[in-house]
């Protein structure tokens, strides 16, 4: 059974909720998100499984598990656009299973269930627009600032494990902009545009793939996209790794770019991906497909590198001594997985 019945890519700036009418492009995005709202309402989803790039974390992966969170949210930057009172219902049972499954795959994870926890702007905006009456509960997971591909792929697999374990059907949503460079001074709505031609071209390339349902290709292109079209606030551009992973890591989708417009300089796209039996593109990838997270590689610290589970598995499976083949003293040269290893954690 495929537990994910549909995937969406949605933008999360507050203008789309509070003042879409101020710019014709914003209104188009909003109308597309309203269509998503209708599609979700008609779906048989039990839960919205959300990964938000607007929610950074440091201690592993935080998973929203508050049955009913209520607050008045104000974006730290776009406070002038207005306040957002919200009520968000989470599927705590599923969130706790997600935590458990993440831990089983060697990830650091915990539930977040505190009154007044600052749910991020993106999650608030998206859930208010596409699930306004909380008909379907959600589970939101944070985006760890240090994590990279392997860890994020594993995080996506843990989400899938949790859905399978609880026999729930989900709509998977990533809340993210494409290019994320916003205007660096107050800019009137009518003057909005994608920040640069380069951002525009990369967004279009990405959307071409998404429109063809080539989610796995987009996942593979994420590193390059991060270099070219993202302001480097975090280690890498991760949402498509999570989405591809939770949706089954293939190109078997019908893609639909429902809208694409600038929002305050960033590239805002509304995209749907529906599982299909026809492959959008028959490509194979030889990048490692990690099942569990082997830990950070301790490239800065003086201690022992974290145990490299996938390398050990490889050794055991193939009955070869990988260390002897390529030099046991050079573990970091091995492209066994793609953790950029920004630092160490000897704990």
């Amino acid at each position: 059974m495929n537990p994910v019945i549909k995937g969406y890519v949605l933008p999360g700036l507050p203008h789309l909720l509070l003042t879409p009418e101020a710019n014709p492009g914003w209104q188009k995005i909003r109308s597309a998100m309203d269509k998503v709202r209708d599609e979700i309402a008609k779906s048989e989803a039990d839960v919205l499984m959300i990964y938000s790039t607007y929610w950074p974390s440091v201690i592993g992966h935080q998973i929203l598990a508050r049955p009913e969170a209520e607050w008045v949210h104000v974006d730290e930057q776009f406070h002038a656009v207005g306040s957002i009172p919200y009520k968000i219902k989470a599927d705590r049972e599923l969130a706790l299973t997600y935590v458990e499954m993440a831990k089983a795959r060697n990830l650091q994870a915990r539930e977040i269930n505190y009154h007044g926890f600052p749910i991020d702007t993106g999650s608030v905006v998206v859930s208010k627009i596409v699930n306004p009456d909380n008909r379907i509960p959600c589970v939101v997971v944070s985006s760890n600032v240090y994590s990279d591909r392997a860890e994020t792929i594993v995080l996506g697999k843990a989400a899938r494990d949790a859905l399978l374990k609880q026999k729930k059907k989900a709509i998977a949503i990533v809340v993210t902009s494409l290019s994320n460079r916003i205007h660096d001074k107050v800019t009137a709505p009518q003057d909005d545009k994608i920040h640069s031609l380069k951002d525009q071209e990369w967004n279009q390339k990405f959307l071409e793939f998404l429109g063809e349902g080539r989610l796995e290709d987009v996942s593979q292109l994420s590193r390059q996209f991060h270099k070219e079209a993202r302001v480097h606030k975090v280690g890498n551009f991760k949402p498509f790794w999570w989405l591809a992973s939770v949706m089954g890591q293939n190109n078997l989708y019908a893609g639909n770019v429902m809208e694409y417009q600038p929002v305050y300089g960033s590239g805002a796209a509304v995209v749907s991906l529906t599982p299909s039996s026809k492959a959008a593109r028959d490509l194979e990838f030889d990048e490692n497909d990690p099942e569990s997270f082997p830990g950070e590689r301790n490239v800065l610290g003086g201690g022992e590198p974290a145990a490299h589970a996938s390398l050990r598995e490889l050794e055991a499976d193939a009955d070869i001594d990988v260390g002897a083949e390529i030099g046991a003293d050079e573990p970091d040269d091995l492209e066994v997985e793609d953790d950029a290893g920004a630092g160490s954690n000897p704990r």
Binding site: W55, P56, Y114, H115, G116, F117
Partner: peptide
């Protein structure tokens, strides 16, 4: 004020 990163420590 609840710390978004360390909500276990700061409310």
């Amino acid at each position: 004020s609840v710390d978004p990163v360390f909500p276990n420590l700061f409310r």
